[in-house]
Amino acid sequence: MLGRYSDRIWSLIFIVPSIVLIGVFVYGFISWTGYVSLSEWQSLIPNYSFAGLENYTTLFRDFRFQADIRNTIFFTILFIGAVAIVGQLLAVLIDQKIKAESLFRNIFLFPMALSFVVTGVIWQWLLNPSTGVNLLLEKIGISPKWYVSTEIIPGIPLGKIEFGIPVAIIAIVIAAVWQMTGFSLAMYLAGLRGVPEELKEAARIDGASEWKVYFKVIMPQLRPITMSVIIIMAHISLKIFDLIYAMTGPGANFVTDVPALYMFETTFRANNYAGGAAIAIILLISVAVFIIPYLLMNRRED
């Protein structure tokens, strides 16, 4: 009996420092950021005078922040869709017991070893109209400018912005998909290898074609994998910063700008700490909208 209580006491002794550090450096700083977002701190000199929701209302009236929301919506949709579809297709191909499977798997996983900054620099060089592949195309009479385009397709007026897909954001999507598809591939490949062969064989014996086996038997088994990929990619896309910072910056007319980049410039270049904190809280809420339901769902399943 004494040994059991002794084990619990020692467990608490080891856990308490971690709880205290998480409480201070995670939840404490989140609370402090929320408080700053409601203040009038807009210079290097702190000003904690209460401003209410003024910083938030100013943001949502701002043309740049409206453009950021538009860019984030389309980037998230295109990024998640492409990563899930391409990763699943590659996983199906590799699952066919092809030769040199480990080689292909490593090739697709390699981009994940790079940071988003490195990826941004590489793709910036490749897609820039004055360098890389486009420089070679220009020499033969082709001069693609979509990487620095300010065109919005389709252009639907909404408030101060046109609500449509910025052409330049497609370049960011390509770079992000190139880097993160390996993660989706690994997830789906593990899921495919976990589907019992008996289920597949039973469907084939019943006369199902390979297409029906995949869509009627395998796909339902991969739903938890798909949900995990969507949640994790959504988390990455909503707070994306380093890739865009290294690759394009905010772009002309903010066609490649995102809230995280706006937060960085507002806080550390304009010294508007209250405005930057307001953007940070909005980012936190948007990520929580995806993460919290996912965690609750997993807890119920467990």
Rank of each mutant, 00 (worst) to 15 (best):
L238V: 08
F254R: 12
I240A: 15
D257K: 09
L261R: 07
S237T: 09
F241H: 01
L261I: 14
Y245S: 09
T256D: 04
H235P: 00
I230F: 13
S228V: 11
A246I: 05
S228I: 10
G249T: 10
A252W: 03
A246G: 12
F254Q: 10
T248F: 01
V255K: 12
A246R: 07
I231A: 14
M247W: 03
N253W: 03
D257R: 14
M247P: 06
S237A: 15
H235S: 15
P250C: 00
P259D: 06
A252P: 07
N253S: 14
P259S: 08
I232G: 04
V255E: 11
N253H: 12
I236W: 11
K239D: 03
I232H: 04
A234C: 13
P259M: 07
T248M: 00
A234T: 14
S237P: 08
I240Q: 13
D257L: 10
G251N: 10
Y262V: 00
L238Q: 02
I244Q: 03
M247G: 07
T226W: 07
I225L: 05
G251W: 09
M227P: 00
S228G: 13
V229G: 04
P224W: 07
F241V: 01
P250T: 11
I225N: 11
H235E: 10
G251M: 10
D257F: 04
M227W: 03
I236R: 12
I236G: 00
I240L: 15
T248H: 01
A252R: 13
G251C: 10
F241R: 00
A234I: 00
V258R: 06
I244E: 02
V229L: 06
I225S: 11
N253F: 11
H235G: 15
F254D: 14
I225H: 07
S228T: 15
M227T: 11
A234S: 15
L238K: 01
I240N: 03
I231K: 06
I230H: 02
I225C: 06
N253L: 14
T226D: 02
H235A: 15
G251V: 09
A234N: 10
V255Q: 11
V255D: 05
K239P: 02
F241Y: 14
L238H: 02
A234Q: 03
A234M: 13
G249N: 11
A252V: 14
I236S: 08
A260W: 07
I232Q: 09
T256K: 05
N253R: 13
L261C: 05
P250V: 13
V255N: 10
K239N: 04
V258F: 13
H235N: 14
I230Y: 03
S237Y: 06
F254M: 10
I225Y: 12
L261P: 04
I232S: 08
G251Y: 08
V229P: 07
